[in-house]
């Protein structure tokens, strides 16, 4: 948020006028960027401060003011006491629902996507382009369209309203993107690698396991972040295909915010929203540098 670090560009300015012009442009850019940063960060600021205030203070004070007295009561209530309908256990059970749904969902869709990408990039078969086009189409299907058929299918499989059912749905609808990511990454790896391994006697899975997977860390991180964000933040599938015991945190958050009677507990709502968003934030912070690296990394030298 600081605008003090103005770096010298190293090139010699042509004249004093040009120098001033460039300085002005630079400052203008910084001002604009700060404005946008403020625009994005202000809601977070309001959420964070509101979640740390007492209800009394919220009612009397200003929206953007810092809390006079910091209290974590709202966080405690959001985690283990807030009511989602008739049940008042807070977000905790739903948080674990989400973890149990997101972790297998992310791992499965990433692993299958890697295998698919490996096939599309390195083991071309007749009709591969058509199959790939279909898979890509899967990336752009509006999910509302598949709700009813998917509900029917989950019913047939006996997975309706269960966490495995949600894992299944998220794995299927994640495959389009995960396959695309891995395929585009593996395409940059020379085919001669597979040929050399074939002559060395390695088969399809051996080559995938020993040569391609170890190469995949950057793109795997990208895929995991992408999938985790998608699955964790998903509301539509969560609300459609879950039952009382298997709702993910996004659905629970909605219920907390909507099921208050009497006084609206803004501090609890805000704390709950932040709790629901923390895991994705955490994943970005831990793996963020790989994310950028993976998006920009192209070919593998060697």
């Amino acid at each position: 948020m600081t605008d003090a670090t103005l770096t010298q560009t190293g090139r010699e300015p042509r004249s004093a006028g040009a120098l001033i012009g460039r300085r002005l442009l630079r400052w203008g850019l910084y001002a604009l960027l700060c404005l946008f940063a403020l625009y994005y960060l202000l809601p977070l600021f309001v959420m964070l401060t509101t979640s740390l205030k007492s209800l009394e203070e919220i009612r009397t004070g200003s929206l953007v003011a810092l809390p006079r007295e910091v209290t974590f009561d709202a966080w405690g209530k959001a985690w283990s006491g807030a009511c989602t309908g008739i049940q008042c256990e807070g977000l905790r059970p739903f948080f674990w629902n989400s973890v149990m749904m997101a972790v297998p969902g992310v791992l499965l869709s990433t692993l299958i996507g890697a295998l698919n990408g490996y096939i599309f990039a390195q083991w071309r078969f007749r009709g591969a382009n058509l199959f790939f086009a279909f898979l890509l189409f899967g990336c752009f299907i509006p999910f509302q369209v598949v709700l009813l058929p998917m509900a029917r299918m989950l019913g047939i499989f006996g997975l309706a309203g269960t966490i495995p059912g949600l894992i299944f749905v998220h794995t299927i609808y994640g495959l389009g993107f995960t396959t695309l990511f891995f395929r585009n990454y593996y395409v940059t790896i020379p085919h001669e690698l597979v040929r050399a391994a074939k002559i060395d006697g390695a088969g399809f899975f051996r080559i995938f396991w020993s040569i391609f997977l170890p190469l995949s860390l950057p793109i795997a991180v990208v895929t995991i972040i992408w999938q985790f964000t998608q699955i964790w933040n998903d509301f539509l599938f969560g609300v459609s295909f879950s039952s009382a015991g298997s709702q993910p945190i996004t659905v629970a958050l909605n219920n907390i915010v909507n099921s208050t009677t009497g006084v609206k507990e803004y501090n609890v709502d805000m704390a709950a929203a932040i709790i629901a968003g923390l895991p994705t934030l955490f994943v970005y912070i831990v793996a963020g540098k790989y994310f950028i690296r993976g998006l920009t990394a192209g070919s593998v030298k060697g």
Binding site: P190, E192, L193, R195, A196, A197, I211, L215, V300, G302
Partner: peptide, 9 residues
Amino acid sequence: FQSYALYPT
């Protein structure tokens, strides 16, 4: 092979 095709990892 032309590109040597050494296993990078």
